[in-house]
């Protein structure tokens, strides 16, 4: 996906992503790509989501630290 195979790509819509997504995300393992629109307007209108290496992941935009999958969060990294 990315030039470094050990780093995944997390895509998010700017308008939809929580302000602290970059802090919550494990940026050593994932490279965040913010864009204006990921053509997922239905999801964007109603919930938080990111796309991880092509896979959509939904979470509560008001509680990313609790609802973003542990695999993606920085504090869970060993």
């Amino acid at each position: 996906m990315s030039t470094d195979p050990s780093v995944g790509v997390v895509q998010c819509c700017k308008r939809n992503a929580p302000e602290d997504l970059r802090e919550v995300l494990d940026c050593d393992r994932y490279s965040l790509r913010e864009t204006l629109c990921l053509q997922r307007c239905g999801e964007c209108y109603e919930t938080g989501f990111v796309v991880v290496d092509g896979t959509k992941v939904e979470f509560d935009v008001d509680r990313p630290r609790e609802t973003l999958p542990a695999e993606l969060r920085s504090e869970t990294r060993s």
């Binding site: 996906m1 991880v52 290496d53 896979t55 959509k56 992941v57 999958p69 695999e71």
Partner: peptide, 14 residues
């Protein structure tokens, strides 16, 4: 296509 096959995204994957 394009979906990761080496991630376990547990309950969040939709």
């Amino acid at each position: 296509s394009g979906a990761s096959d080496d991630l376990n995204l547990d309950a969040g994957t939709a």
